[in-house]
Write a protein that binds this DNA or RNA. Sequence first.
DNA 1: CTGAAAGCGCTAACAC
DNA 2: GTGTTAGCGCTTTCAG
Lengths: 348, 348
Amino acid sequence: MCMNPEGASSPRAAVRREGRVTINDIAALTGVAASTVSRALSRPDRVNRVTRERIQAAARELNYVPNTQAQALSSGRTETVALLVSDATNPFYFGLIRGAQQQLRAAGHALLLIDTEDSAELENHLLHKVRRSVDGVILAASRLPEQTLSVIAAELPVVTVNRNVPRVRSVVIDSPDGVMQAVEHLVSLGHRAIAYVAGPPSSWANEARWRAMRTAMARHGLTAARVGPFGVSRSSGSVAADALLNTGATAGVTFNDLLAIGILQRLAERGVDVPGEISVVGCDDIFGADFCSPPLTTLTAPIEQAGRVAVSMLLDHLEHLGETPSRQTVLLPTHLTIRQSSGPAPRR
Amino acid sequence: MCMNPEGASSPRAAVRREGRVTINDIAALTGVAASTVSRALSRPDRVNRVTRERIQAAARELNYVPNTQAQALSSGRTETVALLVSDATNPFYFGLIRGAQQQLRAAGHALLLIDTEDSAELENHLLHKVRRSVDGVILAASRLPEQTLSVIAAELPVVTVNRNVPRVRSVVIDSPDGVMQAVEHLVSLGHRAIAYVAGPPSSWANEARWRAMRTAMARHGLTAARVGPFGVSRSSGSVAADALLNTGATAGVTFNDLLAIGILQRLAERGVDVPGEISVVGCDDIFGADFCSPPLTTLTAPIEQAGRVAVSMLLDHLEHLGETPSRQTVLLPTHLTIRQSSGPAPRR
DNA sequence: CTGAAAGCGCTAACAC
DNA sequence: GTGTTAGCGCTTTCAG
């Protein structure tokens, strides 16, 4: 009948609070205390069977959905895990994301995806920011210095992928071993001058692969050339291809497939025959490696499995907090998948 | 000196509560009330400049990070947006995820990634579950029936991608227009028998593309054949290729690139020349479309932009809650990118 | 086994 | 402008 003065809405967006069913509603409906409802729902074994069933029935009937915020606030557990990737667009991560997502869902946890845009600074900042909003984090290809990682791992459950840091759990794909296989493969095809096409210097895996390459070459009394560093995008492939050609090598092992595919494209442009004039071996076996042209010989990495394992390790860690943080690291094997980008060394 | 009885730790994992800095610590340090700290941090303009600066300095010094759970609980805003995709592994989503992620970060929001595994049921379930944990959701290629979507949109801010539902905001990529361009292209190359290779029936976009195809063909007095439905994976391409060949068509327009690439592989296996014997046109221009063999003629979709726009619409919606939910839909143009998988129709 | 009560950390009226 | 006071919805001692 009259305008009430408090009718004016607040400047902040109205908060939707309609329709929310809380444990109190269930408590009221079933005539028990809210705390009992809470128990019945989150630790069913701690409550009498008949009350429990009555409560669960009521919950179902009212279409109750727990408020995760509230749960998190009072319990300290968020049932959420953050996955930090350096570039959500990199096909390498697709499998990782997928594997992690699967395993997480199975455990009823949510996945917070964070793109660090390949910046250590941003990575650190975002990590700091979500620290309290997640139960733990998975760091895929972290760009952070070892010391920073140690500090973070001390205050938050962490699992790294493809990055080995003392006292931090990690799953690493054994690409170095794969690189050795690749070198054997190339050497047996008659190659003597083989170059490593390096990725970002901040990448731990990059250095690990390079080391493996030198070792493998040394076994045959050969020394590996090295070009780079290059960015890990297909477009970096152009420069990389030219640099690779310049070394006079008859074969190149690249930091990853993205780079390798870029190189393949550039070589085609320049009319260089692969593998006739030069062989190219990639790393990871990402989506596309099997249908680029020529199909890429590469190190097949169990990426999806890595995602699953990382999650398992993290969840396991969460269960046993406080226990000795044994420097546990899982090594996943790779194998060489031979396709058409590698072949016999050209005659001199 | 003596063991205190409460020393026994609880059976649940210990909750880490060490080192947490709260607004109370800042309040104590600066000698103001906690509420003032809260204000100074979240609505700086509502507090005296010098107090504000003192508070901000203290916050920085103590390395304060707000507890998002608590913020969410009391404010109702979570600063988190969920992105539901039907398959996190589908390269189509990479760009979408990336675009969304970018825009979200710029606005200081987090991204909850949810994989619905292509199941309407699971989609509905998960949506229900996160309803209260996010400010809004972006539904990429939802499999939900229109009515369900309407219901959800009524109780939670929603933006759909490639799915048009009355009263639900959406961004749709104008592939139907692109399909028409594709048909013109093929017809002008002399093709008369053109088939549509269908994707999942539950996909809204699939039907939209098929309709566009028929219309475009009709304009030339032609009728399109249709094969399928097929799954949207490369492996479905084998069956699809055989079915396509069976129609006797000289060209095929496929639901998406993944399928098209699969078809290309199968055709190569069967020794069918593309585009000599048959032309193939894909849809989306995903990663890989430009380097498969032959490179795929396809409809280039602004996928990343779609992700950004979807987020913008959603955030905008959040700002103006309660306002008339005008059925706002943004149409993003596509264009035909001609590569080597399409060519003149073969002579009879 | 269940209830009462005290918060989790923060925001949002409402006073002053 | 700033302090006071209630909660947000849930978990978790602590009694009984």
